[in-house]
Amino acid sequence: MNARLLVALIWFPCAALAQGFAGLGSDAEGFALPKPDKGFDFPADHGAHPDYRIEWWYLTANLTGADGRDYGIQWTLFRSALRPGDPGIKDWSSPQIWMGNAGLTSPGRHFSAQRFARGGIGQAAVTVAPFGAHIDDWHMTANGPGIDSLEVAASSEDFAYRLQLSADGPLVPQGQDGYSVKSADGTASYYYSQPFYLVGGTLTLPDGDVQVTGQAWLDREWSSQPLSDDQTGWDWFSLHLEGGQKLMGFRLRQTDGTHYTSATWIEPDGSPTPYGDGHLSATPLATASVAGREVPVRWRLELPERGLDVEVSALNDGAWMDTVFPYWEGPIMITGTHSGRGYLEMTGYE
């Protein structure tokens, strides 16, 4: 028996939820469920919510190097509870499992790496005051109260990065005051973002270091069953538009061929306008053959209420995350009624 396989089997329900892979079916029995109108409690909500089955700290950054080229990085920490009821066990028997994914994309190269850790022994954890999230040496650590100023770092055999982030805007609740509905059945998650980070730092590539600057977007989400049984995967967009507006949008693909969409338009001052199912339209325009799959790498995004009609295309078609649960995640360039840069994550393309 391959231990990785063992891990895959076990992680499966959680990864399915976290990434929108097929075959959910797991119920939330025993875990807490998100409720509308609860509101957030900061800084406590920056930390972990072990009563919920899954949770993530998900950072993407669009960067420009001193060499003039575009780069993108991803830093992700997932938490999954194998069983409900976590009395804060401080040894190996803790049911909390952690997974870290890191990616680095340039126009010509793409790197990815993955880490796993058990909860309860200190190899991976999230603290609230001061805020810090880590798995092994990968970390996202606050330089002060809250999460306005962060250091983010990851390293692997062939790449590494260390970035300083500072927010020049407020935290943004997604959906209805942070209650983000994910299907017509009403499955939902708690979801807030910090899309206003300005970034500076260093990427380490096989050919040497590159100084970079740019923008980053942090997503925080936790739930116990965010997808419905009939949802097979998702396409998630985060756009930094020139002019300071931001757009978060996702399309959940359903087995009957229909989609469930959701979007949040964010003004430069951070005030969000949520749009429920049907307002955002995301249409694949072209696919690329990646890791033996056909993955859409050029899209048309339309949000008529905001006069938005743009085409987004991947900086690097081959931004495949070759991890235990593989998916596509990479930087995108925006043209059309608006321009800018952003990130695209696509899961469930088998």
């Binding site: 028996m1 391959n2 231990a3 990785r4 063992l6 891990v7 089997l9 076990i10 992680w11 194998l82 069983r83 190996w92 049911p95 499992i97 796993f116 850790a117 058990r118």
Partner: peptide, 22 residues
């Protein structure tokens, strides 16, 4: 530790036990 052990650490093949990783 099944999460950090190298792939194929466990030799042999066969069905795992009940209850998965938990």
């Amino acid at each position: 530790d099944p999460l950090t052990a190298p792939p194929s650490f466990l030799p042999g093949s066969g069905p795992g036990g009940a209850g998965g990783l938990a």
